[in-house]
Amino acid sequence: MEENGYKINDQTKAHFITATVIDWVDVFSRKKYRDIVIDSLNFCIHNKGMILYGFVIMSNHIHLIVQSNDGKLSDLIRDFKKFTAKSILIAIENNPESRRDWMLKRFEFACKSHSRNEKYQFWQYGNHPEEIYTEKFLWQKLDYIHLNPVRAGIVEKASHYLYSSANNYVDGKGLLEIEKVSNPVIDVLDSKLFTNSLSW
């Protein structure tokens, strides 16, 4: 899996992954589509060897810090994106959706330049993978993920946003069972990031 210099070299290591909807279409402004992603992640955790350290679902993209227990991270991400794309497209086509025609036209147009698509392209190609190589880098990415909804003005505190793993780290529970990493210590993050973490 390679794109613009980014590649998953070690399939056994945890990576920061971004999956973005074609043309940044705000599909996940609807709960039913966010729930499809949650259900798919839950299935991957319990049946496909996914180890999930953190996540957030924004209106048109998702971030994951993820690892494969089977050492096949590229295959795991590929299958996850393929299944979620198919499931969301079926939901768009078969459920009440005021934006149906507009969205489907965008997805249909996007796939015309790629022969591997049958009719629609939902996710952009590539995942911009970044290997998690230190504990400090892991916590930088977790902070980035969890503060996304705060920066977007959706919530005041990261733990108030349901569709992320922030609450797993604050209260020990969330929508998904994640692999919760140890709490950061003062020398892992700089003081600003550490303050942000404690202020959730």
Rank of each mutant, 00 (worst) to 15 (best):
Tyr6Gly: 03
Ile8Cys: 04
Ile8Pro: 09
Ile8Gln: 07
Asn9Asp: 11
Asp10Met: 07
Thr12Asn: 14
Ala14Cys: 14
Ala14Ile: 10
Ile17Ser: 01
Ile22Pro: 00
Trp24Thr: 07
Val25Glu: 12
Lys32Arg: 15
Lys32Pro: 06
Ile36Ser: 06
Val37Asp: 03
Ile38Leu: 02
Asp39Cys: 12
Asn42Glu: 08
Phe43Asp: 15
His46Lys: 15
Lys48Cys: 13
Gly49His: 03
Tyr53Gly: 04
Gly54Cys: 00
Val56Ala: 05
Val56Met: 05
Leu64His: 06
Val66His: 02
Gln67Thr: 02
Ser68Gly: 10
Asn69Ala: 15
Asn69Tyr: 14
Lys72Glu: 08
Leu73Met: 08
Ser74Leu: 07
Arg78Met: 11
Arg78Ile: 07
Thr84Gln: 02
Thr84Ile: 05
Ala85Cys: 10
Lys86Tyr: 05
Lys86His: 08
Lys86Val: 03
Ser87Glu: 13
Leu89Phe: 03
Ile90Lys: 15
Asn94Thr: 14
Asn94Pro: 04
Pro96Arg: 15
Glu97Met: 11
Arg99Asp: 13
Arg99Thr: 10
Arg99Trp: 10
Trp102Leu: 08
Met103Ser: 12
Met103Gly: 04
Phe109Asp: 09
Cys111Leu: 02
Arg116Pro: 02
Arg116Gly: 04
Glu118Leu: 15
Glu118Val: 15
Gln121Arg: 14
Gln124Thr: 11
Tyr125Lys: 13
His128Val: 01
Glu130Ile: 01
Glu131His: 00
Tyr133Asn: 09
Tyr133Lys: 14
Tyr133Thr: 15
Thr134Asn: 11
Phe137Asn: 08
Gln140Asp: 11
Lys141Gln: 06
Leu142Met: 00
Asp143Met: 10
Leu147Tyr: 15
Asn148His: 00
Pro149Leu: 07
Ala152Arg: 11
Ile154Ala: 12
Glu156Arg: 14
Glu156Tyr: 11
Ala158Glu: 15
His160Ala: 11
Leu162Ile: 05
Leu162Val: 02
Tyr163Asn: 12
Tyr163Ala: 09
Ser165Tyr: 00
Ala166Leu: 07
Asn167Lys: 13
Tyr169Val: 04
Asp171Phe: 15
Asp171Gln: 13
Leu176Ala: 08
Ile178Cys: 00
Ile178Gly: 03
Glu179Trp: 01
Glu179Cys: 02
Lys180Tyr: 01
Val181Asp: 04
Ile186Leu: 08
Asp187Leu: 01
Val188Lys: 06
Leu189Asn: 13
Leu189Tyr: 10
Leu189Met: 12
Asp190Phe: 11
Ser191Asn: 14
Leu193Cys: 07
Phe194Gly: 07
Asn196Val: 06
